[in-house]
Amino acid sequence: MMEAMFIYLATVCVVCAVLTVTLRQPVYNVLSLLTLFFHVAGLYVLLNAEFLAVVQIIVYAGAILVLYLFVLMLLNVRTQSRHLHRQWPFAVLILGAVGAMLVGALHSGVWGSASGESTAAAIHEIGDTQAIGLRLYTDYLLPFEVASLVLLVAMIGAIVLTKKSLIDDHIDQIKE
């Protein structure tokens, strides 16, 4: 049962990922990316990580992708006549090589099976929300705070960029 679900979710993930970069209509690209996000959330549910699954949908589907769609519609992006980049054979070559390496690594046994203490069963035992919270605010507190600082800087940067004219006016006033 679990395996059948995994195969379904994984297959749809791969198909949607390919469609995201190959479809011509930009809105269809966004929609296939949306489907992809939902199926990735499904994979998290299979691993007893409901919290991650729901956050995946809230953050990626509910916030980021809506903004993509928003921008697409505001800009009214036209479908490009030239669909594939002219260097595509080169890209396929590199991606093929990386893919082969990944498949090889998976088969070599290093990542062959799930390792570490946080197995799906262990997470089910503590509760997945609690597990993430404990890890994040004890072992990974510093990286967590650094990440929030980086995001804050990005927010301030966005404000500075969009309000550039206002700031320039202000500087002019000071000079006078």
């Binding site: 949908i57 809230i58 589907a61 509910g62 509760g127």
Partner: peptide, 25 residues
């Protein structure tokens, strides 16, 4: 009785926005 029931509602509330935007578009 999901252990993330509240977030589940919020996740799907966000998805409802797609219907509105796509319908409009």
């Amino acid at each position: 009785d999901l252990n993330v029931g509240l977030l589940y509602i919020f996740a799907f509330a966000g998805v409802g926005a797609y219907g509105v935007i796509l319908g409009g578009w």
